[in-house]
């Protein structure tokens, strides 16, 4: 379990005058639990604290006040950091920023040898990870030959090889085209069926997280609310305040329901056609 308790975080907090200067905290008094196996989405405007919190979860940054603990290990405990970092892995926006190998195989093996994975088992593990994400590439393929979508799958394979229990995707699809984006999301769900981990998904696109267990909405460094997608979808205004736009059909369904027309919240083209044609 991830346990975030009354956590406040300033970038550059070491400079004494920051607070006096009215410097705004990136996070203020955030408390949150994330259960094992859960699929949660962090949602909110640019600068609302989503990414800052994800950086606290694997100890890239440490809280200014409060504590973050991962399976009982507090991130501010230096001795526990390697365990925390291994348990919580992040895939960022731009896959090229986290690729180090010349070939697909080297890239995945790099992380493995870094954490001391048994040398004789690395080749197996690399093959397993490539297979897991359905990357259509052998391990000798140069990373530079991969398309954007393939690079992002490689980034996913490279972190999954490390057997994380928590995976954070920080706008990992924002640089992909719509086809690659759909494939990436499909791959992710396929992987979760075979190998279970807690998924923390950061995005501005709600259609990618309609099947999440829980949405957590951030605003100016605070958690405003959290709840199931079905519940939060009803509050269009709040979603908009958090920089989020419901997909077209959901928006339409919401407006129709407001006018007393009974339609499913997630109406699709087919259902809409039936509603309109049945009666005419």
């Amino acid at each position: 379990m991830i346990d975030i308790r009354n956590t406040t975080f300033y970038y550059n907090a070491s400079q004494d005058d920051e607070e006096d200067a009215g410097h705004k905290p990136a996070l203020s008094h955030v408390s949150l639990n994330i259960s094992p196996g859960e699929f949660v989405a962090f949602l909110g405007r640019n600068g609302s604290g989503k990414s800052s919190l994800s950086r606290l979860l694997n100890g890239i940054e440490l809280p200014t006040e409060g504590t973050v603990s991962v399976e009982g290990h507090v991130t501010s405990d230096k001795a526990a950091l390697p365990t925390v970092r291994r348990a919580v892995q992040i895939v960022f926006q731009n896959p090229e920023n986290q690729q180090v190998g010349i070939t697909v195989g080297e890239d995945i093996a790099f992380g493995l040898s870094n954490i001391g994975w048994p040398q004789r088992d690395i080749a197996n593990r690399v093959a397993w990870a490539i297979n897991l994400v359905g990357l259509d590439a052998d391990e000798d393929r140069p990373v530079t030959n991969l398309s954007g979508g393939e690079k992002q799958k490689l980034a996913l394979a490279a972190v999954l090889a490390l057997a994380p229990r928590y995976l954070i995707l920080d706008e990992a699809t924002s640089m992909l085209d719509p086809v690659a984006r759909r494939q990436f999301v499909a791959t992710l769900h396929e992987v979760r069926k075979q190998y279970s981990f807690t998924l923390i998904y950061i995005t501005h696109h709600l259609e990618e997280v309609t099947d999440a267990d829980r949405w957590i909405l951030f605003q100016s460094g605070r958690v405003v609310t959290s709840g199931t997608p079905a519940d939060l979808m009803e509050d269009v205004r709040l979603l908009q305040d958090c920089g989020l736009e419901l997909p077209y059909y959901q928006t339409l369904a919401g407006l129709l329901r407001e006018s007393g027309i009974a339609v499913p919240a997630a109406i699709n083209e087919h259902e809409l056609r039936e509603l309109l044609c049945k009666s005419s």
């Binding site: 405007r45 640019n46 706008e171 924002s174 640089m175 501005h204 958090c242 989020l244």
Partner: peptide
């Protein structure tokens, strides 16, 4: 080149 990538609704 992809001016809105990574921006929220308001931006």
């Amino acid at each position: 080149d992809e001016p809105t990538a990574g921006l929220d609704l308001q931006s």
